[in-house]
Amino acid sequence: MSAMEVWHYILLAISVASMTAGLVFVLAGAIGVIRMPDFYTRMHAAGVTDTLGAELIVLGLMLQSGLTLTTVKLALVGLLLFLTSPTSTHAIANAAHKAKLKPQLKRHRPEHPADRGPEERKS
């Protein structure tokens, strides 16, 4: 097993770790879009997907493909996502604000069944 092979496997391991973390962030963002109570908070959940999730997956694919033209193209896609995602997020938020969609600003904490006392649960 030469040094090049060891280096290759190290790169693959970093790639697997990065893409797994990226998938976790993307899925968490998607679940957050379902769970959050109102539009403005859903926007934050979608932001998790757009920034770190996307960049981690692009990084993992770049490590897999090695030093070719494909890597440069992947970096270009990552840069494009990095530059356009805040602009479109701000555009959506600003449109909602200008349309006078009111954000919900009080504390949001739906009651969990486990929070109730044992006496209440009996009744």
């Binding site: 998607a30 757009d50 999730g53 996307a54 692009v58 449109a95 909602a96």
Partner: peptide, 16 residues
């Protein structure tokens, strides 16, 4: 705006 946000986020995931 929820729908537009969903379409935008869906597009990002499609790219990935």
């Amino acid at each position: 705006y929820d729908r537009v946000l969903a379409v935008n986020s869906f597009g990002t995931k499609t790219v990935l």
